[in-house]
Amino acid sequence: MAKIRFPVLIALGLFIGALALSSALKDRHYLLLSLVLLCAALLPLFLRLERRKLEPRELVLLAVLAALAAVSRIPFAALPSVKPVSAIVILSAYVFGAEAGFLIGAVAALVSNLYFGQGPWTPWQMFAWGMVGLTAGWLRNTRWMRTRPGLLLFGFIWGFLFGWIMNIWHLIGLPDAFSWGLIATVYAASFYFDLAHALSNVVFLSILAGGWIKVLERFRKKYGLLR
């Protein structure tokens, strides 16, 4: 059963991909295509995880950080856009690298949505938070990110990028009305939410950075994890 499951899933994926493509070409109906592309973007990184040899300690570490990020979302559920998740993902990636950052972001999005309710936005959030972690990991050794203002600026920028990625979802729903005007309207409407997210990122990062990086580094050194 398990052996045939994988090829079957691949065939199914290809089939749905083809359907999506033809529906997009035929009817300019992009919702399905966007979902397929999103899954395709997430897939390689998850595949890499499957192939990699991971020590139990590293696995548990990833789960703990993802769970912390998910839990940190709960007390702030009432305030839109104010979520420490981004800050936690950035700091984890800063210490443990791009791949870990991606996984922590994506899994935190998936799991927290198991509590808040899954929806079509789940893959978008997985993607957005995964990318937050991935980029933070990539840039962590640049001189810019090593300074505190650089780190805060990074958080600020991602506050907006995150919102912009989520906006795409709204835009795709209206392929027919797609115009600069619509884009401007949608992005203007989300501006204050994005600004709140960006500012809260800066605040959370400035509070968390010193302490958390120290704790995580201590832990990494003590147990020699994820080198």
């Binding site: 995880l49 499957e50 696995l59 548990v60 990833l62 996984l103 899994v107 927290s112």
Partner: peptide, 14 residues
């Protein structure tokens, strides 16, 4: 299996 395990463990930790 690995992605599922990480997700499951996260689910338990929450």
């Amino acid at each position: 299996p690995k992605s599922a395990l990480i997700t499951l463990m996260t689910l338990r930790f929450v």
